[in-house]
Amino acid sequence: MCRDCGCDSANQVAHFVQLVEVPRKLRLEQFVLAKNDRIARENRAWFEKQGMRVLNLISSPGSGKTLLLEKSAQFLRGESHKFKMAILTGDQEKDFDAQRLKAAGAEVLQLNTLSSCHLDASMIQKQLGIFVRPDLPLLVIENVGNLVCPAAFDLGESQKIALLSTPEGEDKPSKYPLLFHEAALIVLTKIDLIPYLDWSLELCEQHIRRVNATAPILHVSAKTGEGMERWFEFLKTGKTA
């Protein structure tokens, strides 16, 4: 063993070379997310070429993403091909959501992310032209329940939709500002529970407006059906008025 540095080298020349090597600096104006951003851009180009609308639904676990989509699938089943929707649903484990959505008549594929807390663009890219057929007008992606990471991982979607259920309290938009800032539409879910909660719509909207001045805010209950017409209208036309 060498007594200068403890290396195994008996080769003095090799060792000498190692000793005179000086550190150099490599500048990397490279995002850690760069790879994901590149694939997301490719996805977006593919979607645009097909004229496909893609919605990325993001919320905490249990906010009601799957139930909203079950009702949406039931509603759209009677509509013409123009309004056909397919769903990619993400969870770390299990395919319970896909089973629920299938039972509601949806065309759906479960994506399991295992240790990862969000979907990434490559998971979507693998399905383009396969599960996601080119003639599909609308693709809805139910992201893994999480308010942080999915906001940082672009999938190539046309719009991000943030869901917030009344039992979560009013202040989530201030605590998770990036998601609520980037959302093109904010859906307040489980409004049927308001009478049982100390939950203020006015306060909630104040928190939303601190981070997003313009996105339309819908109030829905997937359970009672209240407010769902506006959501269905958005699914069909992209408009909420």
Binding site: R24, K25, L26, Q30, F31, L33, A152, L178
Partner: peptide
């Protein structure tokens, strides 16, 4: 948002 979303490696000192 011009800054604040990033999480990136700026540079490395390498040998």
């Amino acid at each position: 948002i011009r800054q604040g979303k990033e999480f990136k490696v700026i540079d490395l000192d390498v040998l």
